[in-house]
Simulated scan of single mutants.
Amino acid sequence: MIQVKLFDEEHEKDLEKKMNRFLEKVDEQKLVDIKYNIAALPEDVDEQIYCFTAMIIYKA
């Protein structure tokens, strides 16, 4: 069965840590794909909010 795990963080290093922790538990042979996206949203004139997201697709 194909499954997905979704990640959503404001900082890329937080996303990296969480994904690496999850990937330690997934057999490399069962890994199908990883999708990654970044969104930048204006919060006000001087700041932006970043959203780093990823989806890991794997076989259960």
Rank of each mutant, 00 (worst) to 15 (best):
D27I: 15
H11N: 13
C51N: 10
L23Y: 11
A54M: 09
P42V: 00
F7P: 14
K59Q: 15
P42T: 01
D14L: 14
F7Q: 01
I57Y: 05
K25T: 09
E47I: 08
V4A: 09
D14V: 08
E28Q: 07
A60T: 03
Y58A: 03
A54Q: 05
C51R: 10
K18F: 02
K18W: 02
V32L: 13
D8K: 13
I57G: 13
Q3W: 11
I49V: 07
A40E: 02
V45Y: 12
D14M: 13
Y36L: 09
I56D: 04
E28N: 07
A60L: 11
E28T: 08
K25L: 12
E10Y: 04
E24N: 09
Q48D: 00
F7I: 05
V32C: 06
L41Q: 04
N20V: 01
I56P: 12
F7D: 12
I34H: 02
A40K: 04
A60H: 08
V4K: 15
L41E: 06
D46L: 14
P42K: 02
Q3P: 06
L23P: 08
E9Q: 13
E12D: 05
A39G: 05
L15N: 00
L41C: 05
L31P: 12
I49A: 00
V32T: 13
A60I: 05
K17D: 11
M55V: 10
Y58Q: 06
Y58E: 02
I57N: 11
I38L: 08
A60Y: 07
Q3M: 14
A40W: 00
N20S: 12
A39T: 03
D14Q: 11
V45Q: 07
L15D: 00
F22M: 08
D8R: 06
E24I: 04
K17F: 10
C51E: 13
E28L: 13
L15W: 00
K5L: 05
A54Y: 10
D8Q: 08
D46I: 10
M19T: 03
L15R: 01
E9G: 06
Q48W: 02
E12I: 04
K59T: 15
D44N: 14
P42D: 04
M1N: 11
Q29A: 12
